[in-house]
Simulated scan of single mutants.
Amino acid sequence: MTTARDVMHRGCECLQINETAHAAARRMAELDVGALPVCGEGGRLVGIVTDRDIVVKCIAKGRNPAAVAAGELIEQTSVWSIDANADVDEVLHQMLEHKIRRLPVLENEKLVGIISQADLAAKLPQEKVGELVEAISATSH
């Protein structure tokens, strides 16, 4: 059985909820990623901020990225995540059902990694990934 742990990107860094959009953008550039999980008290996952969030919700609105907290950029709805030991079919199901491109991976309620479409494309057979990519690309977050 292939699990979320087998396909996830390890060493995922968590942005603190009170860190600025500017700090988030700088960290994304350093890590060469387009999204960062956002954590609140006790390292608990509260959301994901993307490079698009920074552009659309901050810069395009004329807001100062050095004065906007990451917590202001995340969706106020539930953040979807998956257990590290979950079967990869459940990963695909969750991403498809919620039409999300990235899925944080938790172990004992702590962030241990993140799974992106690219991770799945690189590690799974093409037919397993095709439906997901098509569905998410049609209406993505």
Results as ranks from 00 to 15, higher is better:
8 M>V: 11
8 M>W: 07
12 C>S: 14
12 C>Y: 13
14 C>S: 12
14 C>A: 15
14 C>L: 12
16 Q>E: 15
18 N>P: 06
22 H>G: 15
23 A>N: 09
24 A>T: 09
24 A>P: 06
26 R>T: 15
28 M>H: 08
28 M>D: 11
29 A>Y: 08
29 A>V: 08
31 L>P: 12
33 V>L: 10
33 V>K: 00
34 G>S: 02
35 A>G: 11
36 L>I: 04
37 P>M: 07
37 P>I: 10
38 V>E: 03
39 C>G: 01
40 G>F: 00
40 G>H: 08
41 E>D: 15
41 E>L: 12
42 G>S: 03
42 G>V: 02
45 L>V: 05
45 L>I: 08
46 V>T: 08
48 I>D: 00
48 I>F: 09
49 V>A: 06
50 T>C: 01
51 D>V: 13
51 D>R: 03
51 D>H: 08
52 R>A: 03
54 I>A: 00
56 V>K: 14
58 C>R: 06
61 K>P: 01
62 G>S: 07
62 G>H: 07
63 R>M: 03
64 N>F: 11
66 A>N: 14
67 A>Q: 15
70 A>K: 02
70 A>E: 00
70 A>G: 06
72 E>P: 01
72 E>N: 10
74 I>H: 02
75 E>V: 12
77 T>I: 12
79 V>C: 04
79 V>H: 07
80 W>K: 13
81 S>C: 12
81 S>Y: 09
82 I>T: 05
83 D>Q: 13
84 A>W: 02
85 N>L: 15
87 D>C: 08
87 D>Q: 13
87 D>R: 05
89 D>A: 15
90 E>S: 08
92 L>W: 00
93 H>P: 03
93 H>Y: 14
94 Q>L: 15
95 M>W: 07
95 M>K: 13
97 E>F: 12
97 E>T: 14
98 H>L: 03
100 I>R: 02
100 I>T: 03
101 R>S: 10
101 R>N: 08
102 R>H: 12
103 L>A: 01
105 V>K: 00
106 L>Y: 01
110 K>P: 05
113 G>C: 12
115 I>T: 10
115 I>F: 00
115 I>D: 00
115 I>E: 01
116 S>E: 04
117 Q>L: 15
119 D>T: 08
119 D>F: 04
123 K>R: 14
124 L>M: 14
126 Q>I: 09
126 Q>G: 04
127 E>F: 13
130 G>Q: 09
130 G>A: 12
131 E>S: 14
132 L>F: 01
133 V>M: 15
136 I>F: 05
136 I>E: 07
138 A>P: 05
